[in-house]
Design a protein around this nucleic acid. Structure first.
Length: 485
DNA sequence: TGAAATGTTGGGGCG
DNA sequence: ACGCCCCAACATTTC
């Protein structure tokens, strides 16, 4: 009789187009699917991610159950648990999707070593990405540091093929240990703010079924005009696939395939696929530059004169900076676990530039509050905004929050939705209420400085201060430091 | 996947 | 008719 295979779910919580599952099935024996809440992981789950994971695992568990396999859920040190389980069931293959996170790579290395002592091995499959970062190098043999050549090379290398269909039946193995139910992991919000995620269920359906439904709906309604609609935070022009992609409830291959099957061409489809490639690029960077979540990729930025300020940081986190588009974004984030991408750039620019807060602070807040929190994308994009990434926005690109608001939320719908204090301010003034005549504010029922704050940092002064900080850094780098790239 | 400062051009008002 | 000035509109440069 064929030995059972161990199928280790991590960030690929799906049954369709799951190469690890496919390989486990191909062995022909029973399968023990397991998910471990790794208490030894070096970077803990953010709050919103924990909420998502709870529901996604519930969905995965039910889907497996329906096909004849029970998901074994455990909590503990995966480095020890996986080899133990493998030994206990006398596993044949041990299969998982490859992860790019540095801590996960170290963990897989340790698991692999432990398994080797048993004469077994950890088999990692391409699951999260279209192209494994280690398989893609530039002509010079070095990893890509700039998006455009990366995207070009990735597309040349990519081999379109239909995704693997979800299996109809999965012969489940009997778990050798008692599961620890997901509910006992306490992933859902608890005191002191037990209800902070109360609006999430209306916005999100974690799990594979929810992911496929969202993909279908987006391709039907949103793909064609994605290029123009995606920049307007007041309308729902995004795909909202990011959290599903993060947890692997749908694979990038499925997304690519669905787009090509749809026969939607033109700018909309093109720009959307480019966004998927930005995600790939982040994974590529994290693989080749594993220090990315902690250290600036341009090393002269390690001397950047940040001015940490708890009060400013709190104002930003709570959506009380006095800049309407920024506060709308921060409040959307808190309430829905998500923020429109255009607005992410604006709020990040304000934090890092006008406020001179270290980008790690923003990264940490996003990590905790975003349902799509992803180490690679989060770190890469914060470095992009801060100017210290390899292919980053130059530091002097400083967003003007009023102009950005007027450009991308011209009627103020987005601001009005998330900052109700400003609901009655006319469009002309909604992105700069402090410039509105007193009579306008009175008619809008708005007492500035009381109902809604004045800007915590003056735009012109903040801009000038940020530019001066840049001069300091580039000056230093000219004297001593080298460059990276 | 900027914004502001600075430069250039050309039409119209006007003496 | 002509030159001058003003300034919006656009282009280029700089941060």
């Amino acid at each position: 009789m064929t030995a059972p295979a161990l199928l280790w779910f991590r960030q690929d919580l799906r049954l369709a187009d799951n190469p690890a599952l496919h390989a486990a099935l191909a062995e022909g024996g029973e399968i023990l699917p397991v998910f471990i809440h790794d208490t030894a992981a070096e970077r803990g789950l953010g709050g919103a991610s924990a909420w998502w994971l709870h529901h996604s695992l519930t969905a995965l568990s039910a889907a497996l159950e329906k096909r004849g396999a029970a998901l074994l859920t455990l909590r503990g040190d995966a480095k020890a648990l996986i080899p133990e389980l493998a030994a206990k069931i006398g596993a044949g293959g041990i299969h998982a999707g490859r992860m790019v996170e540095p801590w996960a790579r170290r963990r897989d290395e340790a698991v692999h070593k432990a398994l080797e002592k048993q004469g077994r091995k950890l088999e990692l499959h391409t699951s999260q990405v279209l192209i494994e970062p280690h398989r893609l190098r530039s002509g010079a043999g070095s990893p890509y540091a700039v998006y455009t050549p990366f995207a070009k090379a990735a597309m040349e290398r990519y081999e379109p093929r239909p995704p693997i269909p979800a299996p109809g039946k999965i012969p489940g193995a009997t778990p050798p240990v008692k599961p620890e139910p997901v509910a006992s992991w306490h992933l859902l919000p608890r005191a002191p703010v037990p209800d902070w995620a109360k609006e999430f269920p209306a916005r999100w359906t974690p799990g594979e079924a929810g992911a496929l439904k969202k993909l279908g709906a987006f391709i039907e309604d949103g793909l064609k005009n994605y290029d123009s609609r995606r920049d307007l935070p007041g309308i729902d022009g995004s795909s909202s696939l990011s959290p599903h992609l993060h947890w692997g409830e749908v694979s990038p291959r499925q997304v690519f395939h669905a787009v090509s099957e749809s026969k939607v061409t033109g700018k909309g489809a093109e720009v959307f696929l480019k966004e998927i490639l930005w995600r790939e690029f982040s994974y590529h960077l994290l693989w080749h530059r594993p220090e990315m979540p902690e250290k600036p990729l341009r090393h002269e930025y390690s001397h950047f004169p940040w001015k940490p300020d708890a009060a400013l940081l709190t104002a930003w986190q709570q959506g009380r900076t006095g800049y309407p588009i920024v506060d709308a974004g921060m409040r959307q984030l808190w309430r829905t676990g998500w923020m429109h991408n255009r607005v992410r750039m604006i709020v990040a620019s304000l934090l890092v530039k006008h406020m001179l807060q270290p980008w790690h602070q923003g990264e940490a807040w996003f990590w905790d509050t975003l349902v799509d929190a992803d180490l690679a994308s989060n770190a890469a994009n914060w470095q992009w905004v801060a100017g210290c990434g390899t292919d980053a926005a130059p530091y002097f690109r400083i967003f003007n929050p009023m102009l950005q608001g007027e450009k991308f939320d011209p009627d103020g719908d987005y601001v009005r939705r998330w900052v109700p204090e400003l609901a009655k301010v006319p469009a002309k003034w909604i992105h700069k209420p402090w410039e509105a005549p007193d009579i306008v504010l009175a008619q809008a029922g708005l007492r500035l400085g009381r109902d809604y704050p004045l800007p915590v940092v003056d735009h012109a002064k903040g801009r000038a201060r940020a530019l001066a900080a840049l001069a300091e850094v580039t000056g230093k780098s000219r004297q001593g430091g080298g460059d990276e790239g």
